[in-house]
């Protein structure tokens, strides 16, 4: 496990939310965030930030069955 990352993530949680890492499971699952970050960064530049606030609801309507 990347102890530096786990410490930094724990510090962010403590400073921003006042929440301390509760147990070993939290440490293990925090370490898994690294994979998520890598996936997120791999997608960077692929889609633009959507300007419309209700775009998802519009997309649901637009993607309905025709007729």
């Amino acid at each position: 496990m990347d102890e530096v990352f786990i410490t930094q993530a724990g510090e962010a949680a403590r400073r921003w939310s006042g929440i301390a890492s509760p147990n070993e499971t939290a440490r293990q699952m925090t370490a898994e965030l690294l994979k998520l970050i890598a996936e997120f960064e791999a997608l960077r530049g692929g889609l633009r930030f959507e300007d419309e606030p209700a775009d998802f609801e519009a997309a649901l309507r637009d993607c309905k069955e025709p007729g």
Partner: peptide, 17 residues
């Protein structure tokens, strides 16, 4: 925090980061 099962609080925690 102690009133959650460990796997529940453990899953929640990364969300704060």
């Amino acid at each position: 925090p102690g009133d959650f099962a460990a796997h529940i609080s453990g899953r929640l925690f990364p969300g704060y980061a």
